[in-house]
Amino acid sequence: MKLIVMVMTMMMISEGSMIDQTCKQTPDFKLCVSLLNSDPRGSSADISGLALILIDKIKVLATKTLTEINGLYKKRPELKQALDQCSRRYKTILNADVPEAIEAISKGVPKFGEDGVIDAGVEASVCEEGFQGKSPLTSLTKSMQNISSVTRAVVRMLL
């Protein structure tokens, strides 16, 4: 019984250390660990699996941001032009960048996965710039940029 407990403890340590070791190589260790630990797949994932989890987080955030944009049309009609641009940008993240990244990582061609992840951060930045300093989406935009940056670092480990 004691041996089983020791083996289980060692497995937990090594699983946790995979996330820790990976996240130490990213620009935001705390964000990385938080994102990966919040997904049950993280504890048993290899680096490709961790990258896919992070890409899923980009998808979730893009979906949340699109929902927020749709709600802002009624509350802030004066921002219609900027909101239209942001809507297009976030739809690009969901319909092009995320699928490209998932397919590339799944097929073992991480370079194309990196391109999709980088583009997600760029799309968010361009959205933000469209408000000329008065964006109601700043916190979501910054989150997308941060998640994209962390995800890119993990995808680069596969190159």
Results as ranks from 00 to 15, higher is better:
9 T>D: 13
107 K>F: 08
40 P>T: 12
55 I>K: 06
66 L>G: 00
52 L>V: 03
28 D>T: 05
80 K>S: 12
57 K>E: 09
117 V>F: 11
46 D>F: 09
111 K>G: 11
150 V>I: 00
124 A>D: 06
90 Y>A: 05
139 S>V: 14
43 S>L: 15
153 A>C: 10
139 S>L: 09
16 G>Y: 00
30 K>Y: 11
119 D>Y: 08
32 C>S: 00
19 I>T: 11
74 K>Y: 11
156 R>F: 07
113 G>L: 08
79 L>R: 00
150 V>R: 01
49 G>V: 09
59 K>N: 12
39 D>E: 02
78 E>M: 06
34 S>Q: 11
82 A>M: 08
25 Q>E: 14
22 T>K: 04
109 V>F: 10
34 S>H: 10
129 E>Y: 14
36 L>R: 03
142 K>D: 15
68 E>W: 11
48 S>L: 05
26 T>Q: 01
117 V>L: 09
10 M>G: 11
114 E>L: 15
21 Q>V: 14
154 V>T: 09
117 V>R: 08
59 K>R: 08
24 K>Q: 12
121 G>H: 05
140 L>I: 10
1 M>S: 12
20 D>E: 14
12 M>E: 09
94 L>Y: 07
1 M>P: 06
128 E>S: 02
8 M>T: 15
87 S>E: 12
29 F>N: 10
21 Q>L: 15
133 G>T: 02
40 P>N: 12
79 L>S: 07
101 A>Y: 12
142 K>I: 14
154 V>R: 04
39 D>M: 02
103 E>F: 09
56 D>Q: 11
19 I>L: 10
140 L>V: 10
155 V>M: 07
42 G>K: 02
3 L>V: 11
116 G>T: 03
105 I>V: 12
124 A>I: 06
66 L>Y: 02
136 P>G: 06
89 R>V: 00
82 A>I: 05
108 G>Q: 03
16 G>L: 04
130 G>L: 03
5 V>Q: 15
134 K>C: 03
27 P>N: 03
92 T>C: 08
16 G>K: 02
64 K>G: 11
131 F>V: 08
134 K>F: 13
26 T>H: 01
130 G>K: 07
46 D>V: 06
114 E>C: 13
85 Q>A: 07
111 K>N: 05
51 A>D: 01
49 G>A: 03
118 I>W: 06
3 L>P: 00
7 V>A: 15
63 T>P: 00
31 L>H: 02
18 M>W: 13
44 S>R: 06
23 C>D: 04
149 S>R: 01
141 T>C: 08
75 K>W: 00
117 V>K: 05
11 M>R: 08
62 A>K: 08
121 G>D: 05
62 A>L: 09
84 D>S: 03
15 E>P: 13
51 A>G: 03
34 S>C: 10
37 N>Q: 14
157 M>V: 09
83 L>I: 06
18 M>E: 13
152 R>G: 01
93 I>K: 00
46 D>N: 14
